Each structure stands twice: as structure tokens, then as C-alpha cells.
Amino acid sequence: MNQFEWPDNQPATFICQRKWQETPNCVSVTLVAENQDSETTFDFIPGQFITLGIEVEGKTEYRAYSLSSMPNQSELQLTIKRVVDGKVSNYIVDSLQEGQTVSVLKPAGEFHIEQPHGKRIVLLSAGCGITPVMSMAKTLLSDKTDTTDIHFIHAATELEQVIYHQELLEMAASHKRFHFDVMLENAQGSEYLEGRLTQAALKQFCPDIAERSAFLCGPIGFMAAMQENLSELGMNMDNFYQESFTPAESEQPEVALNLEVTLGSDADKAQAISNATVFVPAFGAQAEAKIGSALIDALEAAKVPVIAACRSGICGSCKCRVVKGAFTRTSTATLTDDEIDNGFVLACSCQVESDVEVALN
């Protein structure tokens, strides 16, 4: 088998191979690389996401979606749910066609099954947050040497909205070390519990939950409630992991590189204090930026081909290098120590503090 080689910080062209309805408002799609041979497989860590670029209304829009498939397979699987004002998600649900090409950035993300965990884990999800933990569960169960005890607890509005329902039931029937429970807001037509996942419900489903390692993904409010519940139940939060598209604060100090600025009148000085110029020599492009504003905004205003997918300092798609100038940054996720030392930044999490010169490659 041949591992697919991802281009560095550039999208690869993929084809939507299959698309099907998972629930009334949710679809799954599989993607294969353009010109891929039958021996090609894809490597990633279960729990990670890819960044998908799709042309919508004449513009390529990028969004991050968690993978629900397992590593080392010949296709990548995503499950996407309709959301209010979801420009890309709703386009995928309504309009993406089998055979259509899309752009894909390599898998990324720090939420994955290789985080340190014990031999007993609980996977908690709600809505489409089920996708990364489903990848974790399937991968662990496919490993004949793995003995991890998995308790999978999912929350949904009603039975027909439970993503992968039948597949999860089959997994529970086939594996003694896999336990599956569902909490529904409206349990009509099912034998599942009705209500919300309170501390009492979590304890009822999984009596030893406080002694397990937890992997959590879902809407922000759901994750906040589950984190509080698990903490109050006595879980060691060093064993708690959640997917988050909010950047971690960088521990890197402000970086100031050499830049000579000659100021004239007081008016010039006042203008220089509040405004800066972002210059990208390779494209002969530049744009004005407010001091303290995000570098990504200036790069987009300069109309250079920069990808901004998560806009949260998580996916790494907007990596670039500040050659000259001063900046601060709030995230260094996906950057290596060498890249940080050499002025690489994530443009969405980099704040302009003076005139800067930028290289995209």
C-alpha cells in the first residue's frame, strides 16, 4: 500500500466519490485523491480534521471538518450537518455532487486518540461532534491487540437524528469491550432515556466514569456542561480532552524583527502609530492594516492566495513567514520550534505591530 503524500501547506485536489444521507439534515461523503491508484491510503490520527475548500458562489471557501473514517484506508469520510447560515456545510448537504472536485489540506489537530489515556475511556458527543470520536472508536476496535474498554455516550434531539445509529448498535453487539448509550431530548419511539446529559445521567450510564479518560466533542454549550459535570463527578481532568476550535494561548513572547521606520511630522508619527503596511513582495501586493489587527485580514485585502480555514489558530492553513517587522501572536499550534524561531506565524492569530514584510512560502 502507498501512503498519500500531502503537499506542504497547500491543498490537494480530491474527488467526491460517494454521498449519502445519514439523517434528515446530515450527509456523509467519501473523498479520494485525484488520479489516485487503488493502492493509495491516507494516514492521520483518529480524531483529527481536514480542511475542505469548495467553490461557493464563485469563491473558494475553506472549512475544517473532522474525519469519521479510520486511518490507512483508500478514502476519507466526512459527515456534515446542516447548520443555520452554514454557507459551506449547507452547500455540501444540498449541492455537492459525486464526481465533483474539492480542495483538501492535510489532516491536522491536537484532539486525537494518541493523547495519553488509560485502558478505560469514555467518548462523549452530541450532534455532528460524533465524527472524530467515531473514528477513535472504530480504530481502537479494529486493532486485535488493543484491549481498551470504550463507553460511548451520545446526545441527540430525537432518534432519527442519531448519526451512525445502526453502525454503533452493530459495534456494541460485536465487541464486548464497547458499550453504547444514547440520551434523547425527545425519546418518543425509542427505549432510550429522555432529557439532557446531567451528572446523574452520566453516572447512570457509566458508573465508573470518574476513573476513565474522556474524549469530548460537540456544540460549545454541550462541551462546557460536560466538562463541568465530569469535573464535579471527580474525574482527573488531566485525563480529559475535547475538540476545540478556540486557539490555545501562545507562550511565545512578542517577536520584533529588524525594521527601520523614518518618521517625519507629528501627523506622520500619529499615522504610523495607528496604521501599518503589510507588504508581500512575491506578489507585488500590499495593504494597510490597523496596529493590533489580524495579519490575515491584511493579506486577504491584498488579494494574495492565502487560505484561512478555521480562523482560530488551529488548522495551520494560513502559515506564512514575517520576514521583517514586529508582531504578536496568540497561537503557535502546528508550528515547529524551528518555524517559530524563523518568524513563521499563523496569519489568523498574528497581530500586526508595525510595517511588515511577509512571505507566503
Rank of each mutant, 00 (worst) to 15 (best):
Q161S: 07
E194A: 00
V345S: 02
E55Y: 11
G343M: 00
T60Q: 11
Y192H: 13
A282I: 06
S349E: 02
Q286Y: 11
R212N: 05
K106I: 00
M235Q: 10
Q100N: 08
D268I: 13
S125C: 13
A309N: 00
R311P: 00
R321H: 09
T330R: 14
F111H: 12
Q36G: 04
L233R: 01
L360W: 06
S103C: 05
D297N: 13
E39S: 15
I50K: 14
E288S: 11
I314H: 10
N25R: 05
E61V: 05
Y91K: 09
M235D: 02
C217G: 12
D297V: 00
A225K: 10
E353R: 14
D143Q: 14
A302Q: 09
S95F: 07
N25H: 06
K19E: 07
N275K: 03
K176L: 02
T13A: 13
A272V: 06
D149T: 09
H112M: 01
I45C: 03
P46T: 15
L123G: 00
A309S: 12
Q271W: 12
L169C: 13
S103T: 04
V32N: 12
E185F: 01
I291S: 03
S142P: 13
R63H: 14
A108E: 04
D355T: 09
Q21N: 09
P71D: 01
G53E: 05
I314Q: 12
N361Y: 15
Y241T: 07
I273Q: 06
G264P: 09
Q227A: 02
D94L: 14
E194L: 05
C217Q: 02
V27F: 00
A225S: 14
V122N: 06
A359H: 06
P116W: 03
P219A: 06
C318V: 07
E39N: 11
